[in-house]
Amino acid sequence: MTTTLIDTAAHSAGHNDKLLLPHWAEIVKIIPEAEGVSTFHFRFTDPTVQNRYRFEPGQFNMLYVPGYGEAAISMSSDLETAGGLLVHTIRHIGNVTRATSRLKVGDVVGIRGPFGTSWPLEAIEGMDVVIACGGIGLPPLRGAIYRIIRNRARYGKITLLYGARMPKDLMFPAEYEAWQKADIDMQVTVDRGDDTWTGRVGVVPMWFYHFRVDPHKTAVLTCGPEIMMRFVIYEALARRIPSDQIYVSLERNMKCGQGACGHCQQGPYFICKDGPVFPFKALENIFNVEEY
């Protein structure tokens, strides 16, 4: 059997006997975030499902739009913050995700889940945490940020490194102030700034050049384009942060979410069930192999 790397939350939607059969969920709210990105709040139409549904930040659902198909999307909040609703921040670039961009409040989609492993929020208690994310990689970490803020005293220094292409592409800018107030060191950077941008211009891994970390008590959570994560990992390892304290969220083509359809395999793992969140230690031999 595959080694379970992280203690995951038990699957709560009980789909074992109903293969790929989604539950309908109604759109309660839509918030435009940036160009081509919006956040959807969903409520299951079946109250039993709604009440039973639990997940941990970092996990994902399969969203189904009838006629279009399914897409794997991470939760971008946690249940407590969202008042029990399911929150997904979706970038409308694929067949299914573009279809969601045309949905309105009151429309329904199918949801299966939750699937996969979650951010190791308990395991890293007592540590300094560097959250390094880019682009659409922040939403899968937002639930973790909320969770950390609620239990702020249990963690050391928290730094959020967040990069985007341009200032207008930044997700959730309205929340940065609150996060800052919760004693999160916000290090926001863009690839290209304009005249009005007084923040940092550069890339996320650059932060490591400017700040010292205590490798033994620092955990890194990273999510974003694989190339960005590669450099974050490289910089973190160069600062002697152990590879089992660096957590990576991977993305692959997924059809089932249950390690059965085969699509998301990388090396010995099914990214959908053994991941998406892995300690980098588990990926050391496969992460940088070209086209593997």
Binding site: G94, N95, T97, G135, G163, R165, D191, R192, I227, F231
Partner: peptide, 24 residues
């Protein structure tokens, strides 16, 4: 070297949308 690394990452334009349609 560090400036070159940053420039490369910016050059990759890694946050840009995909060039091919994605299969979801």
């Amino acid at each position: 070297a560090s400036r070159l690394m940053v420039t490369r990452l910016q050059l990759i334009d890694m946050f840009a949308g995909p060039s091919e349609p994605i299969n979801d």
